[in-house]
Design a protein around this nucleic acid. Structure first.
Lengths: 341, 341
DNA sequence: TTGAAAGCGCTAACAC
DNA sequence: GTGTTAGCGCTTTCAA
């Protein structure tokens, strides 16, 4: 079944076993060109019997075609990215392209390294989260000559194509809804944002929209690390101790929002009457909580799908190098924690 | 900065720009062999200026060394696997090895395809979830001649090395704890298990340990798809409607357990007095719920780390082909939903 | 310390 | 339909 020594099998082995030239074997294995049914059958039988697995490294070098799409994201533990990955995988299925994931840990230096590493495999395209990269990273992306899609965020200048939502507008929109619903004394709870540019942009959009209406954030609270659910509880407790007059809490993500919601619920606070709440993301993980948190859908799956489609379209027809810009519209869901105006 | 036409840069370009042979450029870029400081500086400057990114495909073909480790898992949305990935990434950092993820969607056929695809890149090792694979997959793994580590589960016959816990024993242990705490009428709630072998093994271990004590599962309920939190609520409601006499519910994972817990909590059920609950996994996502669900830690991070260490040890010293078997001991945490005996 | 030649395993391009 | 030849861009090996 297997070969005696540990030398991996080559086309040549299959060629000898089946009595056909290497070239014909190659054609059979790739379903290319005309091969008689008899030959095809013979080759496939030999390949299977030997347990031959083609060497894509050699194939890629010879054909300068690599069916990989580099996907570069900050983290896998942040629920959001697995969902994007799902969209990408689904869209890439049956295109012959394969996603390869690299994780940056929200660090620009790590991103640069991961990108360099991935580009050195000469992928057919790159999907990368965010618009903020080091100069070197941007230079590499531009010089690579392959399609690049930046995802999640559209507030900024992309290298090539971009698919995402405007986090700034998402923040603005939520601020307007909150005001429209009659809340007045608004607190903000979120992550420390030195690196999470999207959270920062939402925050900026939020405060600016409030400012336009003459409202200022009454208080704010930031966290880092730890279980988001617990942090949400703790921060909510803290901010309300400091400022019991708050009538709305805007959380920068649904997990801390859920923590706050659970705590307030236990305290018997009237939601959304006495206190309104909203988060961000629409994690359907959270369906099943005692009440549904108001939130905004970040279109994660669709972002992944559209980005992958852009890449595969470019690969199929590289005569179309015009950058695409897709700004999706997140939809607000009121849940049970935001008074309908 | 970049080249005029779209031809990717090669060693030759750097060689010409720096006036040194390709071979010397190659040595500089890989930090191999003796190169004078002057030459090194000149080469690095040229490479940087041109924006040269080495072609690993050619490098791998020439050296037959590939610094990739294939990681094959069923899913990314199941919280569990990102945690394993984190363990793997951490252990692989600074070894020069890079994990590459493939996702099977719990399907053997897909697993076979993904494995074939990954092996065709001639990785330095394979980490693959579970012990149940198609015959063809097992054959490929054996024939590959590279280190293979099967993870998560140790109940079965590995191809090579294995790192995990015994899910059968985990089920048994939980059954014993429940009986020891004095619960008598026990219900089981879980996923439909045609493909989740680990959930199945826990279930089997659980029922067998009960049987040994002369106890039978009083009722059971299975689900598939949808938000686990909601499913947990619904299933709990359903099973108790059918059988209100139950005094313990064992859930096959913490998410449905949390759903059940929330619902029972809302109904004012006395937990763990009137009703005991336990899940499986120790997702620290869930810290912050009104009460802490009893559960068992599946050692996910450590599994990833240990598996990666096995691979990197083999790569560093391939004179050590003896398979390793690591069975970790999951620890039970009582939380607030299992009476201490 | 540096360079030249050969070849990794495959496929493009062309010949038959 | 099938085979032959010439590389793909690197690294190994050996010579200088």
């Amino acid at each position: 079944m297997s070969n005696q020594d540990n030398r991996p099998l080559t086309l040549r082995d299959v060629s000898e076993a089946s009595g056909v030239s290497e070239m014909t074997v190659s054609r059979v294995l790739r379903n290319r060109g005309d091969v008689s049914d008899a030959t095809r059958a013979r080759v496939l039988a030999s390949a299977k019997e030997l347990g031959y697995v083609p060497n894509k490294i050699a194939g890629a070098l010879a054909s300068s075609r690599v069916n990989l799409v580099a996907v570069i994201i900050p983290s896998l533990s942040n629920l959001v990215f697995p969902e994007v990955m799902t969209g990408i995988s689904d869209a890439l299925d049956d295109t012959g392209l394969q996603p390869v994931v690299g994780v940056t840990g929200y660090s620009r230096e790590k991103e640069e390294k991961v990108l360099y590493e991935m580009l050195s495999w000469r992928p057919s395209g790159v999907i990368i989260a965010g618009l903020e990269h080091s100069e070197a990273s941007r230079a590499m992306l531009k010089a690579s000559g392959i399609p690049v899609v930046e995802i999640m965020d559209v507030d900024g200048t992309p290298v090539d194509s971009v698919v995402g939502i405007s986090h700034r507008r998402a923040g603005e929109q939520m601020a307007r809804e909150i005001l429209r619903s009659g809340y007045q004394r608004i607190g903000f709870l979120g992550t420390k944002m030195p690196r999470d540019h999207r959270a920062r942009k939402r925050f900026e959009g939020f405060t600016e929209a409030l400012a336009k209406a003459g409202v200022e954030i009454a208080d704010q609270e930031f966290y880092e690390g730890g279980s988001a659910l617990i942090k949400g509880r703790e921060m909510t407790q803290d901010i309300l101790k400091r400022d019991p007059e708050l009538d709305f809490l805007y959380y920068s993500n649904d997990m801390i929002g859920a923590g706050g919601l659970l705590w307030l619920h236990e305290q018997g606070v009237d939601i959304p009457g006495q206190m309104g709440l909203a988060g961000f993301n629409g994690l359907n993980l959270l369906k099943g909580l005692p009440r549904q948190l108001a939130t905004m859908d970040a279109c994660r799956n669709e972002i992944g799908r559209r980005a992958a489609e852009i890449i595969s379209a470019r690969v199929a027809d590289d005569a179309d190098p015009s950058p695409v810009r897709i700004a999706l519209e997140p939809t607000i869901s009121y849940g049970d924690t935001l008074r309908r105006p």
